[in-house]
Amino acid sequence: MRVATVKVTFDRETGEKLEEEVVDVSEVDEDEYYRPIAEFLYKKLKEAKVI
């Protein structure tokens, strides 16, 4: 899976997006990409005793 690292600059007072720049594009294994969110959600669901 191809992923991009994007750098975005916002105006702190208005919240307006000033600039957006693609810093890097790379190939990442899907398991590696989704693992952090899956582990986070699993922990939250386990704490809530949903699973």
Rank of each mutant, 00 (worst) to 15 (best):
V28G: 02
V22G: 01
D31P: 02
M1C: 10
D29E: 11
T14D: 04
D31N: 14
K7D: 09
P36W: 02
A4I: 11
L41P: 00
L41M: 14
S26D: 10
I37G: 04
V6S: 08
F40R: 15
V23N: 04
K44E: 13
K49R: 14
K49Y: 02
E30G: 01
V50K: 07
E16I: 01
V8Y: 07
L18I: 00
Y33C: 03
R12L: 05
E47T: 13
V25M: 11
I51E: 06
V8L: 07
E13K: 05
K46C: 05
E32D: 13
V6R: 08
L45S: 06
V8W: 04
E21A: 06
V8S: 11
Y33R: 08
E20K: 00
A48Q: 13
I37S: 13
Y33N: 01
F40T: 14
E13H: 04
V22R: 05
D31E: 15
E20I: 04
K43T: 13
E21G: 01
A4R: 15
V25D: 07
R35S: 13
V22I: 15
P36G: 04
Y34M: 09
A38H: 12
A38L: 15
T5F: 01
V50D: 06
D31I: 04
E30D: 15
P36C: 02
E47I: 12
E19Q: 03
D24W: 05
V50Y: 09
Y42F: 11
D31R: 06
A38K: 14
F10K: 10
G15A: 02
S26F: 11
E13S: 09
V6E: 12
E32M: 10
F10H: 07
V50P: 03
T14K: 01
E21D: 11
T14Y: 00
I51M: 12
L45V: 10
K17T: 08
E47C: 05
V28D: 03
F10N: 06
G15H: 03
E20S: 07
A38S: 09
R35T: 12
I37H: 09
K7P: 02
I51T: 06
V23P: 01
K49G: 01
